[in-house]
Design a binder for these strands. Structure first.
Length: 712
DNA sequence: TCCACGGGCATTTTT
DNA sequence: TGCCCGTGGA
């Protein structure tokens, strides 16, 4: 059987074009991942390319995992020799092997944006600048931009008053990072490019190794990533870039559309393949999306089509205000459920997170469980970072920042004064803070208590280092215990503390999973992995519920029913884009939103909307006007549903142990305990998954069995 | 050391 | 209008 028989003609071309550069313009839902996987299978099976000679870049861990799975099912176990990963994880791999050439130690750690921010804050303080006037966040984004554009501190060209200061902070920041043996996210790419650019022998080694390079979501690459790819591809030019200029929505964080628009100029003789057949949506939905995006001037041009039936028209609903808009969404979803759709088939997409509130309220009141995408990520939680800080110091003793985070947490008697002394000593002796701890008994001006505590901490870290033979999960558990973090949280006996303990437990499970999946108990590998992983990748398939998320978060996803909300001038397109002249990116965002829908698409807007405490009347979004009337029909609120939803407001009175209730986030459960009275009533609910949680009844928005929507 | 208060701020988010 | 962060008081 021929491998490529299962593909359509352009998809097949994308696979067969194996010599030289190819740009695959893959429209939304055009079978991009599938095509990529087949191309790789084709290279291996038909062209005799060894998997280890293939390198594939993605942007997210999720995409990397999906691609790996796809390839694995076509190629089998040999696929493990391929390098498939995010830009950042591939960069880490390259740097671990070669970073000594740049004057770093190969035990470097990766700082996340929180770490980075406190480091910058520290620098601003060191310079004795007013932190109000020069907030760390400002420098953080500017420095990130600079690195994305591959500009080092010395190449910083802005010499205004402001620019001079940026340069000062940027250059100090880089020096500090190096001293801490740490890299920030942007550095991973930046330093990799530097390495390949300045070290010909390293460059040729990788070029010789990777005969084929693939890049997914090419429209999202920035200049630094572009250079990284360039260096790896070399003269041979076997690059397959896959992307969609119409879905470029990350310009604001450095993605440069020129990379895709000028691909043919950059890579001489490049072929272009267009994947325009869509396997996701109805023709009506595609027509609407095409009609909108056609208004952009900066694009390569492409029209999606399908051989599916036309489908029902796009429903447009004009609400008096954002509250009614949300009620309408609840009704639409309710109706869809009645017709046999599942809650998880439905998604509400909006432009800004602030819009989620009204939908959360409406869904809760209507007894519709929902999943809010976004929010704090697992590895950014305080308790997780605390445990990680211990691990990082053990791995990289130069990491003063992590040590400072936990030097007196849990409290062990190394207060401000002692910390200052230790830091002074460390900087005078030019040694890491961890080393100063070890020498505490020799440092003057330390109290007896601080001395003892320092030695103990130092000893704790040393002993931990020696536990390298144990399993990773054991070691993580161990440090969480021995450090006293677990004890501290256990003693607290509050809900928050319990949640935190649970999160630490989760971290331990992650360590176990990591060890099983990656087959290594190496601490450095684990730390590197953790730094580059976000949890929303992992926790996707929990429970049911309607999806509430921003359009940005929805990219790459698809749902049978989609409601795009807040379609008003100033909201979507966002007012800021109107001022900054980036409406085309907003339009692409709209295109992304529309193309998420498989069968049913609803567009809503509100005549008046309260934002930042002000009620505005915004005109209907230009993007709605760009959709031909023939594709639209008017949505209506259902009078009956109105009554039903009104009757469904949550109750506090009448709760009793044993009763079945539905929580908006956690779903159905059974009340096991009640504490307190009236507004202070705390209700404890056991959920079938095994979780037991306590809520303030007043805020929990519980719905009883008898008032559920099923009766409406 | 914790909590309460108030100022400032308010797209979009991954790694 | 609401949230987050930093500060200052008890």
């Amino acid at each position: 059987m021929n491998l490529l028989d299962e593909l359509n003609e352009p998809q097949r071309q994308a696979c067969l074009q194996t010599d030289g550069p190819v740009l695959v313009l893959a429209g939304a839902g055009s079978g991009k991942t599938r095509t990529l996987a087949y191309r790789i299978a084709y290279l291996i099976h038909q062209k005799g390319v060894h998997p280890s000679e293939i390198l594939a870049f993605t942007f997210t861990n999720k995409a990397a995992r999906e691609m790996k799975n796809r390839i694995d099912s076509l190629v089998g176990p040999d696929s493990r020799f391929m390098w498939v990963g995010t830009f950042h994880s591939v960069a880490v791999r390259i740097l671990r092997e070669n970073i000594d050439r740049l004057g770093y130690d190969d035990r470097f750690v990766v700082y996340d944006t929180d770490d980075t921010k406190s480091l910058i804050r520290d620098i601003v303080r060191e310079l004795r600048w007013d932190e109000k006037e020069w907030p760390a966040g400002l420098f953080q984004t500017t420095i990130s931009r600079a690195k994305n554009r591959f500009l080092s501190p010395s190449e910083w060209e802005d010499h205004s008053f402001y620019g001079e200061r940026v340069q000062e902070v940027y250059s100090r920041y880089q020096k500090r990072l190096k001293a801490l043996n740490a890299l920030d996210f942007d550095d991973l790419i930046f330093q990799s490019v530097l390495l390949l650019q300045d070290h010909a022998e390293v460059r040729s080694r990788y070029q010789a190794r990777f005969k084929h390079v693939l890049v997914d979501e090419y429209q999202d690459t920035n200049l630094a990533q572009y250079r990284l790819v360039r260096h790896l591809v070399g003269e041979r030019g076997n690059l397959c870039a896959v992307g969609d200029d119409d879905q470029s929505i990350y310009g604001w964080r450095g993605a440069d559309m020129r990379n895709i628009l000028e691909f043919q100029r950059d890579y001489a003789g490049a072929a272009i393949v267009r994947l325009e057949q869509n396997y996701r949506s109805t023709q009506v939905i595609l027509d609407a999306a095409n009609a909108v995006v056609r208004n952009n001037r900066e694009r390569l041009g492409k029209d999606l089509w399908t051989d599916k039936e036309p489908g029902q028209s796009v429903r447009l609903y004009r609400a008096p205000d954002e509250e009614s808009e949300a009620w309408y969404a609840a009704e639409v979803i309710h109706e869809a459920i009645r017709q046999g759709k599942r809650l998880s088939d439905c998604a509400v997409l909006y432009r800004t997170n602030a819009q989620s509130r009204a939908f959360e309220m409406a869904m809760s009141r209507a007894g519709i469980s929902y999943r809010l995408v976004g929010g704090k990520r697992f590895y950014e939680r305080k308790e997780v970072k605390d445990v990680m800080a211990y691990l990082r110091v053990v791995f990289n003793p130069a990491d003063d920042l992590s040590l400072l985070r936990v030097i007196n947490y849990p409290r062990r008697g190394i207060g401000d004064v002692a910390q200052r002394r230790l830091r002074e000593y460390a900087s005078a002796q030019q040694i890491p803070l961890a080393e100063a701890l070890a020498r505490a008994d020799r440092i003057e001006g330390l109290s007896a208590q601080a001395r003892r505590a320092s030695s103990e901490l130092s000893e704790l870290l040393r002993r931990f280092e020696e536990s390298a033979g144990q399993s990773l999960a054991e070691r993580v558990r161990n440090i969480a215990e021995v450090s006293g973090i677990m004890l501290l949280l256990r003693q607290e006996r509050t809900r928050e503390a319990d949640d935190r303990l649970e999160n630490i437990g989760e971290l331990i499970s992650e360590a176990k999973r990591f060890e099983e999946e990656q087959g290594t108990a190496d601490l450095g590998e684990f730390l590197g992995w953790v730094a580059l992983v976000s949890d929303w990748d992992e926790t996707n398939e929990d429970g049911g519920g309607v999806w509430l998320m921003t359009v940005h978060s929805a990219k790459g996803l698809e749902f049978p029913l989609v409601i795009v909300a807040g379609l008003e001038e100033g909201v979507f397109p966002h007012s800021r884009s109107l001022n900054e002249g980036t409406v085309e990116e907003e339009r692409r965002l709209m295109y992304v939103a529309l193309t998420r829908a498989q069968d049913e698409l609803y567009l809503t807007y509100a005549e008046t909307r309260t934002m930042l405490g002000r009620t505005n009347a915004n005109p209907m979004s230009r993007f709605i006007r760009e959709i031909p009337d023939s594709l639209l029909s008017m949505g209506e609120r259902l009078a009956a549903a109105d009554r039903a939803t009104a009757a469904m407001s949550h109750h506090i009175d009448g709760l009793a142990p044993g009763q079945r209730v539905r929580h908006p986030r956690f779903g159905w459960g059974t009340i096991v305990a009640l504490r307190g009275e009236g507004d202070d009533t705390e209700v404890t609910i056991a959920f079938p998954g095994g979780g037991v949680r306590a809520f303030m009844a007043k805020y929990a928005q519980l719905v009883g069995e008898e008032s559920g929507l099923s009766g409406a």
